[in-house]
């Protein structure tokens, strides 16, 4: 019996709080080698499911250490941007500094352009994802 035993059933049959608990279990075991390959695959399926939810607690739990270590770049970037939309502080994102890349900055720059065109403020977290000052804005496109 492992720490994530039955996690898929617990997630699918659980309410939001129980789903968050399953995601937190995954986060706890992201680096300790306790997850077998099939558990990791199942965990990624649950993380992707949670990233489609509109409850910020679920999205936030899905962007913890497990996603930081195992989630592919495309889905991970969308997870970061989703938290920006939900106004959840990005401090919740595991390995943000290591994993942020030119494509994430490009997505952030496009969103900042939309916000500015709409006369809406650019939140600090979004600003923090923009390409470094001095870098050409076209870089990474």
């Amino acid at each position: 019996m492992t720490a994530t035993d039955g996690m898929e059933a617990r997630y699918r049959d659980g309410d939001t709080e129980q789903r968050i608990a399953v995601l937190e279990d995954l986060n706890r075991h992201a680096y300790d080698g306790a997850l077998a390959d099939d558990e990791r695959e199942a965990g990624l399926g649950l993380v992707r499911d949670a990233l489609r939810a509109n409850d910020p607690r679920l999205v936030s739990a899905a962007m913890g250490a497990f996603a930081g270590r195992h989630l592919g770049d495309h889905d991970w970037r969308h997870g970061v941007m989703k938290l920006v939309f939900m106004e959840v502080p990005l401090t919740t994102v595991d390995r943000l500094v290591d994993r942020r890349d030119a494509e994430l900055s490009r997505m952030a720059a496009d969103l900042a352009e939309e916000r500015e065109a709409a006369g809406r403020p650019v939140p600090d977290d979004l600003r923090s994802l923009l390409p470094p000052v001095g870098a050409a804005r076209e870089e990474g496109r």
């Binding site: 939309f85 997505m107 496009d110 939309e114």
Partner: peptide, 14 residues
């Protein structure tokens, strides 16, 4: 039939 296409919120321009 006409098609209603939603454009994404997160990476809208692209």
């Amino acid at each position: 039939l006409p098609v209603i296409v939603h454009t994404p919120h997160r990476d809208k321009k692209y």
